[in-house]
């Protein structure tokens, strides 16, 4: 072969070879690779999965083991969300494994965390022909779902308090027929508990707001703001309640009694919520991750 002369057959063969290699590489890294290494599982939940996107990561003990392939609403039950996930075949998904939704960093995006919790069992979806991994609501989901309930209860209480404090009742109160010592003791106890509820609520709102702001989870922020307003109004009404306990009559007392029962219930709910936040505070704390420390980059 003369120097500088091009062998077109060789060039053509080389290009063809490169095309075949490229196609094969694409195929292996997309379809073939996925099928070979991952297995599909189904997660079903009635809770909101806001922040979870297709492609979101699936973790087990902090190690990425898969990703979310598809998210859809169950056409047969509009309250249920179906999540199809691809999980590394090397991870044996067994009874006692459960999925939870977690927030990732400050982005507000979510990911799925698989963990071991005794008592949970895998299911099987005949229609999809997939194994179902049970999902339990995360602390964050519990908080988002329980706060509106507390607000609703607090609003009900406000309405009842307004009812009790109507001008008609105030007149009756002023007439004062008798004092029921036992009930008064209960009322006083309830007032003390309600005051604790207000203090605890304020602390909780302050802590939660500080932490939740970093997450920018709009739903929680709105809920907290609403709750804060209710808590302030309640505080004002507590002082009025104290007066009522000293000047209650036979018509007002039963109403007050039922009202205070409601207050007790709400106080308990708030305590539970506070407990949840205490148990897993780091789920809301987001210290912005920085670049690796110089020591981490040295091997």
């Amino acid at each position: 072969m003369l120097e500088g002369r091009v062998n077109y057959i060789l060039v053509g063969l080389f290009i063809l070879l490169m095309i075949v290699v490229s196609v094969l590489t694409l195929y292996i890294f997309t379809k073939f690779g996925k099928k070979a290494e991952y297995k599909k599982y189904l997660i079903i939940t009635p809770e909101s999965i806001s922040g979870l996107r297709e492609g979101a990561k699936v973790y087990y003990k902090g190690v990425q083991v898969g990703k979310v392939e598809k998210i859809s609403i169950d056409p047969e039950d509009q309250n249920t969300v179906k999540i199809i996930v691809l999980i590394d075949k090397k991870l044996k998904v067994i009874d006692g494994m459960v999925a939870t939704l977690r927030i990732q960093g400050i982005t507000g995006l979510s990911y799925i965390n698989i963990e071991k919790k005794p008592g949970f069992k895998l299911g099987y979806d005949e229609k999809e022909k997939l194994t179902i991994i049970p999902m339990k609501p995360s602390q964050l989901q519990k908080i988002t779902s329980s706060l509106p309930e507390i607000i609703e209860n607090a609003n009900k209480i406000l309405l009842r308090i307004q009812e009790v404090l109507s001008p008609q009742n105030t007149k009756k109160i002023n007439q004062l027929i008798f004092k029921a010592d036992k009930l008064l003791a209960e009322l006083n106890q309830a007032v003390i508990e309600t005051q604790k509820f207000i203090t605890e609520g304020k602390k909780l709102v302050k802590v939660t707001q500080n932490k939740i702001k970093t997450l920018d989870v709009e739903k929680i922020n709105i809920t907290i703001e609403k709750y804060q307003k209710v808590a302030k109004t309640l505080e004002k009404l507590i002082s009025q309640l104290k007066i009522l306990t000293q000047n209650a009559d036979s018509n007002t007392l039963p109403k007050l009694n039922s009202l205070l029962e409601k207050l007790k219930e709400t106080s308990q709910e708030l305590k539970d919520l506070s407990h949840k936040l205490n148990a897993e505070p780091y789920s809301l704390i987001n210290i912005k991750e920085i670049k690796p420390h110089p020591l981490e980059e040295k091997r």
Partner: peptide, 27 residues
Amino acid sequence: ADYLNTEKMVYRDAKGLHYFALNKWAC
């Protein structure tokens, strides 16, 4: 302490508290 109640590994420097980015506890 709450800030240790995680899988992330904590360190401090003059600027404050940080988590290591590439190293963490196994659980």
